[in-house]
Nucleic acid binder design. Structure first.
Lengths: 234, 234
DNA sequence: CTCGATCTGATACCTAAGTAGTAGGGTCTG
DNA sequence: CAGACCCTACTACTTAGGTATCAGATCGAG
């Protein structure tokens, strides 16, 4: 087996798992593959090159990438989406031609498969399965942002922090994942707060035995306690 | 012309203007009309009957309707979308089968045309034009919620209030519309704040000559001033 | 016209969260 | 292993926004 064939098989596997493409059959995937190319970005790279995001559509194969808003005045930042394997971006660029006023930054080394936007749009028309996946995908994202906004207004920071942690527990391993190795700052961005405040509350969670907190290391120590923190607010 | 024909023609006109159906031709509209029925809700009616919203899809013909989140504990409320003529709801019910955790309430007497959800979903498949309108429509809503969340985190209340007002100026008449007759409470819900706080800032806007404020009456007095309020924060 | 409901305008108070600053580990790199 | 840099932990301070309450308007139903 040639190296190229090996790669090709990896790509096929990757695409078949992707949230939008998963229901395509082998034949169709093969066709798509012709237009797709691989790309990698190093850790903590900010994609200032907006053009690239506007003109191509990306499937994430590996690594985490955040989509965030930035207040140019205060420099304050907050994360809208934390994307990882099998996710895509930027879905908004598929839907219309207006600018999406956000930034993109890799949190790990990120590997993606990428295709020209126009082609992806055409695929959606040609293969109804993609459109069928697209709609519920949009629903998920929509709900997510709605909950986000609701949380900010209705919920205090300790609760939001607890919810963030709870929603990132792997259902099989019961371990914290995806956010367990982030700095306090990144955690803050995920709940719309600031480094200092998040740390303040993490200290409390640590003191009362809910969490183990280390340098870029979060661990749940007492799940019951954590659950109680959000329940008593509900 | 019979009364029924008159109504029928009104419906046709209504549907042809609707954000999702606008690009259908006469023939197609006629087909759709067979499945559609009219309904009216009085002012300030809360649609607690979630079933109805989950099983039918609605086109707004007249009146304003808000989609809002509610914190059952504090009773605090905040408006996600303020819908009016030519808008639809609930678009999320089209996309998947999960519950949409929101409430609906009419702000005026609201008239809608309504169709079973299943049929609307089928139409989207049958008439590609609808799907073509649906995607950019979703983009608009998505951006709106994203901006909403961003605003809450990054922007103080006077600025959000000013932005709310600015974004509701009719482009031709230059008059405030859609929110000009709301109570302070409803305004508060629209920016994720509370009655008292909104009033506090409205008083200032009034004092410095930006607005005329009356009982359920908002008027812009000095547009320049209003603009400056959001610019200096940007 | 009157009564009750609703909305406004104003006061005073409280608190969570943002800000600033600082000291001390850790980690990485040359 | 030295220095730079990044993270964390903690303290002290400020403040915008939420809460509570009340009195006076305004409205509308009967």
């Amino acid at each position: 087996m040639k190296v190229d064939d090996k790669k090709r098989n990896r790509y096929i596997k990757d695409l078949k798992e992707n949230c939008l493409l998963k229901d395509l059959d082998q034949e169709e995937i093969n066709i798509l593959l012709k237009e797709i190319s691989e790309e990698s970005w190093p850790k903590n790279t900010c994609l200032i090159d907006r053009e690239k995001v506007r003109r191509r559509f990306h499937f994430i194969i590996e690594g985490r990438l955040k989509i965030y808003k930035l207040d140019p005045l205060t420099g304050r930042e907050f994360t809208l989406f934390l994307l990882s394997r099998n996710d895509v971006f930027d879905v908004l660029s598929l839907l219309d031609d207006y600018e999406h006023d956000v930034f993109y930054e890799s949190l790990d080394r990120v590997t993606i498969l990428t295709v020209p936007l126009e082609i992806m749009r055409k695929w959606i028309e040609i293969y109804p399965v993609i459109n069928k996946n697209l709609l519920p995908y949009l629903a998920v994202k929509m709900r997510q942002v709605e909950e986000y906004a609701a949380g900010i207004i209705l919920t205090d920071i300790p609760t939001r922090l607890a919810k963030l942690i709870l929603s990132n527990i792997n259902s099989t391993s019961h371990k914290l994942e995806l956010i367990n190795d982030l700095s306090d700052e990144e955690l803050a961005h995920l709940i719309g707060s600031t480094r200092a405040v998040v740390n303040r509350h993490l200290q409390e969670f640590k003191k009362d035995g809910t969490l183990n907190v280390g340098r870029k290391k979060l661990e749940i120590r007492d799940l019951e306690l954590l659950l109680r923190k959000i329940e008593k607010k509900e």
